[in-house]
Computed example of a mutant assay.
Amino acid sequence: MDRQKGQHMVKKAIFPVGGLGTRFLPATKALPKEMLPIVDKPLIQYAVEEAIEAGIEEFIFVTGRNKTAIEDHFDHSVELETTLKARGKDQALATVHNMMRDPGSVIYVRQQEPAGLGHAVWCARHIIKDEPVAIILADDLILGKSCLAEMVAAYDSTGGGNMVAVMDVPASQTASYGIVTPGQVNGTSIDVHGLVEKPAPDLAPSTLAVVGRYIIQPEVFATLATQERGAGNEIQLTDALAKQIGKAPFTGLRFSGQRFDCGSKLGFLQANIAFALERPDMADDLRQWVKESI
């Protein structure tokens, strides 16, 4: 696939949003967990904005039942827009309009069973075909520069292969992550020599963990098609990526931002505070309240 100067090949992103969000019940009984707000913006919108900053042009949402709120969020709301316009709320109207993507650039695919991240990604195989694709997990919220933009820049400079975002975690937490066997280090890039899903601390090859950002080659879909089950009796994306080691370059990228695990209640609360402190309209008042409360 030829590239024109100044263009990169990663133009599509998959957003797996089919999970049930049971850790946030009862809030997620009727509301998708990806629609939980960080300050005043849902998690999924942060993910989409990160992708836009990375140059993504096509947005593929792999959904499940009771996820229509996500589709509605990125669609027109005629009644709301008409009301905002009539009341002269131009800034709010612009905010709503800016969320919209070009017609045909947003695609929804139904994951018919919760069989793991690898299965969710595999469900988008017919849309991806023979090109690399980015994957963003909205639960992993990153404050700072677009993590995916950093990955795309590194991907363009190396010319391809598979890539994951990585960060160090405490040894006691390796069983919650995909863990990398690191090789040669070149600045923020690390050669990946091995990858294992959720190893016990005494079996982990390192404390370098995969965070929910990926760029994968189309060959990974062929491996996912075997439907082989891994940790948790689920089809694991990390297992499919591990089987590509030696067949294609595989890189881990240390990103510059601060990651929050918004799949946990503590991480979700921490993210709300951290993002609010970045807001000029509320940072001072929040800082003062926290100081007084503590």
Score class of each variant (00 low, 15 high):
residue 109 V to F: 00
residue 74 F to K: 08
residue 73 H to P: 05
residue 96 V to P: 00
residue 111 Q to T: 04
residue 94 A to C: 08
residue 130 D to H: 09
residue 128 I to S: 00
residue 117 L to E: 07
residue 144 G to S: 06
residue 92 A to K: 06
residue 84 L to T: 13
residue 150 E to K: 12
residue 82 T to D: 11
residue 157 S to Q: 00
residue 67 K to R: 01
residue 67 K to T: 00
residue 78 V to T: 15
residue 100 M to T: 08
residue 103 P to W: 09
residue 84 L to C: 08
residue 82 T to W: 05
residue 150 E to D: 10
residue 144 G to C: 04
residue 128 I to K: 01
residue 83 T to Q: 13
residue 150 E to N: 14
residue 65 R to D: 09
residue 118 G to S: 06
residue 139 D to K: 11
residue 132 P to G: 01
residue 148 L to T: 08
residue 110 R to C: 03
residue 65 R to C: 04
residue 147 C to L: 03
residue 140 D to V: 15
residue 90 D to E: 15
residue 121 V to C: 06
residue 119 H to C: 03
residue 100 M to L: 14
residue 67 K to P: 02
residue 125 R to Y: 06
residue 115 A to K: 12
residue 154 A to I: 11
residue 117 L to I: 12
residue 141 L to V: 09
residue 125 R to E: 05
residue 152 V to Q: 08
residue 150 E to M: 13
residue 88 G to C: 14
residue 73 H to R: 08
residue 99 M to H: 02
residue 87 R to N: 15
residue 152 V to M: 09
residue 71 E to F: 09
residue 129 K to T: 12
residue 107 I to P: 08
residue 111 Q to A: 15
residue 143 L to W: 07
residue 145 K to G: 06
residue 105 S to M: 09
residue 85 K to Y: 03
residue 138 A to H: 09
residue 87 R to M: 11
residue 89 K to N: 10
residue 71 E to K: 15
residue 111 Q to K: 09
residue 138 A to G: 13
residue 131 E to Q: 12
residue 75 D to R: 14
residue 82 T to A: 08
residue 82 T to E: 11
residue 131 E to K: 15
residue 144 G to W: 00
residue 152 V to A: 12
residue 133 V to R: 14
residue 106 V to K: 03
residue 81 E to H: 10
residue 83 T to K: 15
residue 88 G to A: 10
residue 146 S to K: 02
residue 98 N to Q: 14
residue 71 E to T: 09
residue 142 I to Q: 06
residue 89 K to D: 13
residue 134 A to K: 05
residue 85 K to S: 06
residue 119 H to R: 08
residue 142 I to H: 05
residue 70 I to Y: 02
residue 97 H to D: 10
residue 157 S to P: 00
residue 111 Q to Y: 03
residue 91 Q to C: 08
residue 137 L to G: 15
residue 110 R to T: 04
residue 115 A to Y: 02
residue 110 R to A: 03
residue 66 N to P: 06
residue 92 A to S: 07
residue 117 L to Y: 11
residue 100 M to A: 10
residue 114 P to Y: 07
residue 94 A to P: 07
residue 118 G to Y: 10
residue 73 H to K: 10
residue 86 A to C: 07
residue 103 P to S: 12
residue 104 G to K: 05
residue 74 F to C: 02
residue 127 I to R: 13
residue 74 F to T: 03
residue 96 V to C: 05
residue 153 A to N: 03
residue 82 T to Y: 05
residue 140 D to C: 15
residue 88 G to M: 12
